[in-house]
Design a protein around this nucleic acid. Structure first.
Lengths: 215, 215, 215, 215
DNA sequence: GATGAATGAGTGTTCATTCAT
DNA sequence: TATGAATGAACACTCATTCAT
């Protein structure tokens, strides 16, 4: 009846694996179908464990969704911080940040779709995640540093707020992924085509840098 | 004994009203909760007619949603065409178009949310609406005309494609409405605040015109 | 406002046509899908008039079904009486009757299916048709006459009741049409194939006559 | 803390009971009202479990109906095989088979009504049950054996096909149950009356044996 | 930690029938 | 006579969640 001394950590590791596996599957499902469209049964089916485990680890559908959302934001902000562009000259750093942001959206449509979905739900779930505001400071801080350096060096004009700069970058990067399907059908342009993507990347970098540049 | 000559049209007009009333209510509901989240019962409740009438006029939830989506696109494109900017000088025309596009998104969040939702559903419903591609030509044609004129006059640089220009404008206008809730929570900025809106409007116009301008 | 003297009969004739047209369509639909499976809307659609007319002429779905059922029985009994076999020698007459009965079922699967369906409904609708018992006397009377003549002539054995004879004939004729689909799937025999039909016809005639024959 | 070794089977056994209980109730309902007429709610009501369980175990109304149909065929063929008449002399064996078939139909009107209903639906559900053709071989094989033995012994005439013999037997047995209601109303004969049943039983056995007998 | 069985409240949809003109 | 619009009651089916083991 008593557990062997080394079996507990092992079980703990397995438990974390189970949890992580559920999060991965749930991320795919919620990103694919939205919170309302995803089915707990289906997620459980695709999991290597069972439906009961979802309730055991997360409590319910909404809580699972919240965990998925939090994990997705954690990932993008971690990636950004890992790619430390602060050492580059301001204009090159900005170029790199915009390009990186653009690429992240393209390569992580599940993030884009989770954010879309959360907005469809009026942000009511993200509002319950305490850590968000703090976690998202990093991207603003990075932009603020670069902006200031660029302004000091006479490369960038004054009056650009780092949050507003982030808004512009995000808006331009987000759209190509978020509005992919309607745009394809309405205008016949496929944002997923490699050449469209490459051209759009250049244009967005160009657009942001022209806007920020000292005239 | 004979029916009055104008009695049938009257009934017909009432029927059109019923149909229109359903579309209005459904637009609000689908925009608010998405296709999966909206409830036929609730839509019916808010209607001046009954649930049965929804099926009578539209056939089902998906078809109703499709009609709503089509009507929303019809409205934005009609508005754009009504505001005829072609007579203005190219740079002023472009300014007006961007401003108008920005305002339309702000004043019609239901349009933005319907488009978001349609993308959540991988554009599977818009794909069934035949008229879309043709309906959306107008906005591209208008931009093409202005671009050409501006290029001829030496105001705009070459190599700007009208569809790409539209992408940039739309991306910048869409985000402030679509990502409102997550942005508020993540960065503490409320896009609905009048001063934020006004500032953002200027920035977007500025951003687009700087990008298009001959250097 | 006053109808022209000859317009009334004309309208009357048109009304009968409308009624008849509804009955024909309804016969096909009820035979095809049963009372529970048939749809008033669909019947109306296939009719050259409208749904309202069904209610106008028949009162409702059940009453229409009753009219259809009555008309089907009327037809088979009329056909039998028209084919007057009484003048033939008893054994030949009986052969003719069995063959005719067999053929009628084959050529009027809608009759078979209406009767099946009525039995599915525990005969509750036929019970409301007053004329039935009397209408069905004819077939028994005809058999009674032939049996008696055959017995007198020493061709048939005694103790055969005309109703029981009719039961045997009907049972054998009915099955090939009524149980067509299950039989095909269970045993791989297609009763609708001409050669199967022809062989079965001979067998049934043979079976009945052997049974009735004086040993 | 550890589950008792026999506790899981117990739960499993209860589940099988639930399933079986649903099948019994559904058999009664589908036999009584047909597929289109039966109501899932009503079946659930009569069940010792709930409506949800019907969907849990069977998936839907059609699948439940299919399971009911399959179970009914399984039962009749099992009964026939259990009553092993092969050891009797051919003519007595055939008598026994016809009598048994007749009795089975009388005592299992639910089987007759399910088959009727399936034919009303053009056999579209039985067509989806793979096992049918093979399951129904047994009755043909049994008849084939008896026929051959009888022909060898000079009791039966040649040229009788076992499937055709089965058709004749079935047709005669089926009708008394399937067409009970219309026959009662049309001819005033109640097939359920014990003396009618007994007389009919004798007649059918007689009819089949006379037909098969060497003349 | 783990599993199959069970559940109640809801969800889109259908149908025969009636109303207004 | 004739028609399109309207209706309420019912119907098959689904879903997140919990229970028993």
């Amino acid at each position: 009846m008593a557990a062997k001394p080394d079996s507990l950590p092992k079980r703990r590791a397995e438990a974390l694996e189970t949890r992580e596996n559920i999060l991965e599957v749930a991320t795919r499902e919620f990103a694919d179908k939205g919170l309302a469209g995803a089915r707990i049964d289906e997620i459980a089916e695709l999991t290597s464990s069972s439906k009961r485990m979802i309730y055991y680890y997360f409590g319910g559908k909404d809580e699972l969704y919240r965990a998925v959302l939090e994990r997705a934001y954690e990932h993008i902000r971690n990636q950004e911080q890992a790619a430390n562009f602060a050492s580059l000259p301001p204009d090159q750093a900005l170029r790199a940040i915009v390009g990186h942001n653009f690429d992240y959206h393209y390569e992580h449509p599940e993030f884009v779709r989770l954010v879309m979905n959360e907005n469809v739900h009026h942000g009511e779930h993200i509002a319950k995640i305490e850590s968000m505001k703090q976690r998202n400071r990093s991207v603003i801080d990075a932009l603020a540093g670069i902006l200031e350096k660029g302004q000091v060096q006479g490369l960038f004009r004054d009056g650009i707020d780092p949050v507003e700069l982030h808004t512009t970058i995000s808006a331009l990067s987000f759209y190509n992924v978020s509005n992919r399907h309607t745009f394809l059908h309405n205008f016949g342009v496929d944002f997923t085509a490699p050449e469209v993507r490459a051209r759009r990347r250049d244009q967005i970098i160009d657009c942001v840098l022209t806007w920020v540049a000292r005239p």
